[in-house]
Design a protein around this nucleic acid. Sequence first.
DNA 1: ACTTGACCTAGAGTTAACTATAAGGATTAA
DNA 2: TTAATCCTTATAGTTAACTCTAGGTCAAGT
Lengths: 139, 139
Amino acid sequence: MLKTYSISEVAKELNLTAYTLRYYDKEGLMPFVERTASRTRLFKESDIEALKVIECLKSTGMPIKEIKHFIDWCSDGDSTLQQRYEMFIERKATVESQLEELNKTMELIKHKCWYYKTALEAGTEDIHKNEKIEIPTTN
Amino acid sequence: MLKTYSISEVAKELNLTAYTLRYYDKEGLMPFVERTASRTRLFKESDIEALKVIECLKSTGMPIKEIKHFIDWCSDGDSTLQQRYEMFIERKATVESQLEELNKTMELIKHKCWYYKTALEAGTEDIHKNEKIEIPTTN
DNA sequence: ACTTGACCTAGAGTTAACTATAAGGATTAA
DNA sequence: TTAATCCTTATAGTTAACTCTAGGTCAAGT
């Protein structure tokens, strides 16, 4: 007798649209979601948790087709524990390098903030014309 | 008499393809690149630096059409310093929240690494069946 | 002079991930 | 019972960012 949720309730909760959830279902990402006799999807709390994991993988840049492999492994049970473990280890490395990249991006952005702040104060970009090493105290 | 680079040299340097660079040019991202009499592009060192800034903006998720606005402002000179400053301030906020998101993602990934490591050791996922608060020492 | 290889443009094709439409079925409220 | 508001499917359309093809030009080497 556990509570269930409609597709639009789940969409709202996860900041997605019902279209998107149906699309994920069509792509095989939600084989676990049960239905009523008349085909209406009934989402359990655990289904929402699984969708959060899917969103997590998506946010690492993993394409939907690869996420499906993971979902298939989940359906296959304990015999795929090794693959799933390795997948998350690999994801961890991916996210680590993404964090590194994003931090580099941040440094350049901060530099540009400083560049335009000082140019704005001077009224012209020309003050940066022949400088090579003007290190601002970052931040 | 400064050194110039061909499109394929620049592509190699920036880990892009010549196709992509021509596409960027077509979209108006490279109005500064000079040409020979026979229309061949001649990239200067400063053009490559500008392209690195474009790549930086791209890596924050900014769409090419918005990047074009920035390039247009650059062409317009000092009268657009304010807009450009504000754009980078806004980008900084964007990257900050992206970093936050990515760190949350990392936490979930690490949790899953632990989840599967322990499941693998036990030979079955069942060991996680009725646990709610098994906090592993993260990392 | 001729071939090779890198360059050029215009325009067509591709891909992923949605996003929307059309036509219909079920549940609730008056 | 009828209207509203969900839900369903199949299928078509959209968008961004490439990615490629065709047909041509140009400069260097043999």
